[in-house]
């Protein structure tokens, strides 16, 4: 049912507000620990049906109900977890709380 809705929604014209939206957001995640943190934070946001982070590209795919939650709110949630979400920068206070390897200052290959 949800799948069908998403499909219909995607093919509908842009003016209409889709009921279920799927977005991809580039994050500043670094490792498996980050994946777990972002996914578990988003999966408990009301309206989010699922969030999956790609370990290679660090892009998180989110499907959500537009009536319950907005894209801005989702990005704010990622920022509050300590990671950049597209153009929204991570909150400093949240970054402080991350373990060493997840911090943006941490060198990455």
């Amino acid at each position: 049912m949800i799948l069908v809705l998403a499909f219909v929604a995607n093919s509908a014209s842009a003016q209409e507000l889709k009921k279920v939206e799927e977005v991809k957001i580039q994050t500043s995640a670094k490792c498996g620990e980050c994946k777990e943190r972002i996914e578990s934070a988003l999966n408990y946001v009301k309206g989010v049906q699922f969030a999956e982070l790609n370990n290679d590209t660090k892009v998180v795919t989110i499907r959500y109900k537009t009536k319950k939650v907005t894209l801005d709110k989702i990005k704010a949630e990622i920022a509050a977890t300590g990671y950049d979400a597209d153009d929204v920068k991570a909150l400093d206070a949240a970054v402080e709380k991350l373990p060493m390897c997840c911090k943006p200052t941490h060198e990455k290959h």
């Binding site: 490792c31 498996g32 620990e33 373990p99 060493m100 390897c101 060198e107």
Partner: peptide
């Protein structure tokens, strides 16, 4: 090694 398995 760090959390992501890297070392230097």
């Amino acid at each position: 090694t760090e959390e992501d398995g890297t070392f230097e």
